[in-house]
Nucleic acid binder design. Structure first.
Lengths: 66, 66
DNA sequence: TACATAAGTAACATATATATTGCATTAAGA
DNA sequence: TCTTAATGCAATATATATGTTACTTATGTA
């Protein structure tokens, strides 16, 4: 469940808490998603993407290329 | 929670049941996602996309432009 | 040193995605 | 008409995403 959320959020210079508040979840949820410990819902992924001005693919597609 | 899964699945000429089996869920889950009644997990969205040779954006991005 | 901010983490509760089973409906072919 | 495949739909059970609360660990700065 790797993704680019952490890098892109930090590039946007906002905290986990700010992002969480904007998309309507808690800081813990954002933290766990960034850590790859959660399998977030599509709707949340879309909200995060819009908040960071990215698309789903940019944040979540083929990040786990191993 | 609109999306393009049904159209693209039908273009691929496979049934809900075939797609479900390939991605490891039940037929009902695919049916409800196509109907827009579910908010699927990211991992399932990725599995569906790969099975249909599409990306997340092609299946789920800004379909709900209303 | 102290204080504040950001982030990691854990326990428990709740909401909901998904499974399981079963039945109804529709369309296509014999 | 009968049969089969594909789909819709509903009730109940289970797994897990997410919320809530709280403690801890940096890190920067006065």
């Amino acid at each position: 469940m790797k993704n680019n959320v952490k890098i892109i959020r930090m590039n946007a210079s906002i905290t986990q808490e700010e992002l969480a508040r904007k998309v309507g979840v808690t800081r813990q949820t954002i933290g766990l998603i960034e850590k790859g410990k959660y399998n977030p819902s599509l709707q949340l992924c879309i909200s995060i993407a819009k908040e960071l001005n990215k698309t789903l693919d940019e944040l979540f597609w083929e990040v786990d290329a191993e």
